[in-house]
Amino acid sequence: MRAEDAIIRPLLRMRDVAARGALYGLAAVPLLGVASLFVGDHHDRRTFLGVVGLVAAFIAMVGILLGLFFWWTCGGDIRRCRDWQTVTGQAGPITVAAPVLLRLGVLALVLFPGALGLHHLVDGAVRQLAVRQLSHARPARPLSADRRAPDGSAHPARAPGGRARRHLAGGRAHRGRCRPGGPQGTGDR
């Protein structure tokens, strides 16, 4: 209902503005979850959700503080965005900005824990995936007796002195399989 000065009555109440901001924030959390599905890599998705959460915390702090300050300075003359035509004077836009900033701040205040919750959910999924991949990995095969070095060590390419042994015999390089004084080499170490 419009009054004679074309302002929509009743004027906005702080409780109604905050409730609508919280409702918008609750609707924004599932949209953020869907939007994060379009980010390809798990690490990038975690980073995206973490950044959105921190930006939402900053916007919530600034929006609520400025919105409450502007609401206080307006002295109860709070107008809707539809009442923009009725704004007069230099301080008039503050009467419209106060509920907008308060609503945006409450929206971001609700979005902040939702974004961080989704961040921890994705982080847990990444850790579960890493554990699952590690548990399904094949264990390393122990070296059989025929693949061991002549001194019995597990590295066939290493000599007892710790250096790699290479011998040339018949045009092919042999790594650690030549015995000293054997037919394939002279046994240099």
Score class of each variant (00 low, 15 high):
residue 7 I to H: 06
residue 8 I to Q: 08
residue 11 L to M: 05
residue 14 M to R: 15
residue 18 A to T: 05
residue 19 A to T: 02
residue 32 L to P: 03
residue 32 L to A: 09
residue 33 G to C: 06
residue 34 V to S: 04
residue 37 L to A: 12
residue 41 D to H: 10
residue 43 H to R: 14
residue 45 R to S: 09
residue 51 V to A: 11
residue 52 V to G: 01
residue 52 V to E: 09
residue 54 L to A: 08
residue 56 A to K: 04
residue 57 A to H: 03
residue 58 F to K: 00
residue 59 I to K: 00
residue 59 I to A: 15
residue 62 V to P: 00
residue 63 G to D: 11
residue 64 I to M: 15
residue 65 L to R: 14
residue 66 L to H: 10
residue 66 L to V: 08
residue 70 F to K: 03
residue 71 W to M: 06
residue 73 T to E: 09
residue 73 T to M: 09
residue 74 C to F: 01
residue 75 G to C: 05
residue 75 G to K: 07
residue 76 G to F: 08
residue 77 D to L: 06
residue 80 R to M: 03
residue 80 R to E: 06
residue 83 D to P: 02
residue 84 W to Y: 13
residue 84 W to M: 12
residue 86 T to L: 00
residue 89 G to Q: 06
residue 92 G to M: 07
residue 93 P to I: 04
residue 94 I to R: 12
residue 95 T to Y: 03
residue 99 P to Y: 07
residue 100 V to A: 11
residue 100 V to M: 11
residue 104 L to M: 12
residue 105 G to T: 06
residue 109 L to W: 15
residue 109 L to C: 12
residue 113 P to C: 07
residue 114 G to D: 07
residue 124 G to M: 09
residue 127 R to L: 14
residue 128 Q to V: 02
residue 129 L to A: 13
residue 132 R to W: 12
residue 132 R to Y: 13
residue 136 H to I: 13
residue 140 A to W: 06
residue 140 A to G: 01
residue 141 R to A: 14
residue 141 R to K: 10
residue 144 S to F: 10
residue 146 D to W: 04
residue 146 D to L: 03
residue 149 A to G: 09
residue 151 D to Y: 09
residue 153 S to K: 04
residue 160 P to E: 13
residue 164 A to D: 11
residue 165 R to W: 11
residue 167 H to I: 08
residue 168 L to R: 05
residue 172 R to Q: 13
residue 173 A to Y: 04
residue 173 A to N: 01
residue 174 H to I: 02
residue 182 G to Q: 05
residue 183 P to I: 02
residue 184 Q to H: 10
residue 185 G to A: 12
residue 188 D to G: 07
